[in-house]
């Protein structure tokens, strides 16, 4: 069987062939893996990979799997499935260049007004979550075209708190 996996950010083609009972021959990243596997529970798989013992802990999230091995976690998705899903959505790919809280938070202060010129990295909004204050910075230099939040507002990830028009491109970072 052929798979295309997205492991963290990289697309990795994988060839997997079933061997004898509970055995797989896997070819990926130019290497051959002889894998004996045992499913221990809903979230745990034990592997013998080329004879080496590995405990993998898996949870499913947003259509992919978070896989923890030796204390480190990888995000693994089926790349083909991912592309199918993405083509159905109209929204373009992830744009990290937005002034938005990384988690549900409360606005403490807004430090800019519409019309202000901001430098990339300049603090524009301070939010607090779980008793920690965090400053959200301008993702690029430009002009503030809109302020969509005020002190005391509860805000969610994805909400654009400040619209900034980029100086170079003239693009408006808003939806």
């Amino acid at each position: 069987m052929e798979y295309r996996l997205k492991i963290n950010a990289e697309i990795v083609p994988v060839q997997a062939d079933e061997g004898p009972e509970n055995n797989l021959k896997i070819a990926m990243t130019g290497q051959q893996f002889d894998v004996d596997w045992q499913v221990i529970g809903d979230n745990m798989i034990h592997l013998l990979v080329n004879g080496r013992s590995v405990n993998a802990y898996l949870t499913e999230e947003d259509g992919g799997k978070n896989i923890t091995i030796n204390g480190l976690t990888c995000r693994v998705e089926d790349a083909d499935l991912l592309e199918q899903n993405r083509s159905r959505k109209t929204r373009p790919g992830d744009v990290p260049s937005e002034v938005t809280p990384p988690m549900p938070a409360v606005v403490v202060r807004v430090m800019v007004e519409a019309g202000d010129l901001v430098e990339k990295g300049q603090g524009v909004v301070v939010v607090t979550a779980m008793k920690m204050e965090t400053t959200l910075n301008a993702p690029f230099s430009g002009k503030v075209t809109g302020v969509n939040a005020a002190a005391g507002d509860k805000v969610m990830p994805g909400e654009i708190l400040v619209d900034i028009a980029g100086a170079a491109t003239g693009e408006v970072n808003s939806e």
């Binding site: 996996l5 797989l24 290497q31 798989i45 898996l58 480190l72 976690t73 693994v76 089926d78």
Partner: peptide, 20 residues
């Protein structure tokens, strides 16, 4: 920065889980 996670092993675990 976090150490590189064991991507190959995670990929293998993913496939075993898919088949299982």
């Amino acid at each position: 920065h976090p150490a590189d996670p064991p991507a190959d092993l995670a990929g293998i675990a993913f496939i075993v889980d898919e088949m299982y």
